[in-house]
């Protein structure tokens, strides 16, 4: 394999990994902070891309549609947290049932509104060109997605380590009772974090639309991949989600080249290997067993 081919594969893996990172980041923090296994997280991806599609159809253009979709998905997340999630904190199995139920409901509502035929979100015209990278062209849009992913990671890292909000979240992941003792309004923090997580998934959906297409069912596909990332990276850390996403994105992509017969199980093989060595994921906190 030539270096330029390898570079192409790596770029592809990174672009895919970054999309997953955006979902996994929210999932991981919600997981770590509120101890919620949010099986409805893929829903935010799904709703995000379909809402953006509608705005694009209405002629708003890609970027306003992106913003509107994120706002709407964040609002959806906020309502979901306030009305439903709040009732099941600490009850893991009820969360499973509740979020599974919600993902059923939303997937079917999306199908009801937009129909079952696959649709596509066009690449924004400003980025609809290809860059020459040795062997051939590489879509500029994917480079953009990689860039956004890295920016987001840097922003989240900064927030986690350098700001008060980050300190609150870190403290909360380690010990939830402590937050209350510090006089912090946990309810507001939880709602806000849930909304941010939803917004990130919505962002991923809109950005992923032109690459992965849109259809009902992509929500559960993407959910499984991002759950794998969260677990590989370790619950409750953005850093873990980032490294995990890159690892999974790259292995999934390169696996297709080097182990074509393993494509179906590639990411699961990686996950089992990681968990056997580090039962709490790469960056997970908590006692090693």
């Amino acid at each position: 394999m030539t270096t330029s081919t390898l570079a192409m594969h790596i770029l592809n893996g990174l672009a895919y990994g970054m999309l997953l990172f955006m979902i996994a980041a929210g999932l991981s923090i919600i997981f770590g902070l509120m101890n919620i296994v949010n099986l409805a997280h893929g829903t935010f991806y799904l709703v995000g891309v379909y809402v953006a599609y509608t705005f694009v159809q209405q002629g708003t253009g890609f970027w306003p549609a992106l913003l509107l979709a994120i706002v709407i998905v964040a609002a959806l997340g906020m309502v979901m947290e306030k009305v439903l999630m709040e009732r099941v904190y600490g009850k893991e199995l009820e969360q499973v049932l509740l979020t599974f139920g919600l993902s059923f409901i939303f997937a079917d509502v999306v199908k009801w509104i937009w129909g079952s035929s696959p649709l596509t979100l066009p690449v924004p015209s400003a980025l609809d060109f290809s860059l020459n990278v040795g062997l051939t062209e590489f879509p500029a849009y994917r480079i953009f997605v990689i860039g956004i992913g890295c920016l987001l990671a840097a922003g989240l890292w900064y927030m986690e380590n350098k700001t008060r909000i980050g300190a609150i979240i870190r403290a909360g992941v380690d010990d939830r009772e402590m937050l209350a003792a510090l006089g912090i309004n946990i309810k507001i923090v939880f709602t806000a974090i849930f909304a941010v997580g939803a917004a990130l998934a919505g962002l991923s959906g809109v950005l992923g639309g032109p690459i992965m297409g849109m259809y009902v069912g992509i929500d559960s596909e993407i959910l499984v991949s991002s759950l794998v990332i969260v677990v590989v990276g370790g619950l409750g850390t953005w850093k873990g989600a980032f490294i995990g996403a890159i690892l999974i994105g790259l292995t999934d992509t390169l696996g297709r080249v080097w182990f074509p017969s393993l494509t179906m199980a590639m990411i699961f093989v990686i996950m089992i290997m990681v968990l056997l060595i580090r039962p709490n994921g790469l960056f997970g906190r908590g006692a090693q067993a």
Binding site: F31, V37, E92, V224, L227, V228, V231, L235, S261, L262, M264, A265, F268, V269, M271, I272, L275, L276, P279, N280, G281, A289
Partner: peptide, 28 residues
């Protein structure tokens, strides 16, 4: 034997992965 030491969400996910691997084998 391999998975029991994981717990909670990690156990949930590692069993998911195991199931998907068996699925992939049968499928392939």
């Amino acid at each position: 034997l391999l998975f029991i030491r994981s717990s909670g969400a990690y156990f949930l996910m590692i069993t998911l992965a195991f199931g998907q691997m068996i699925y992939a084998i049968v499928y392939k």
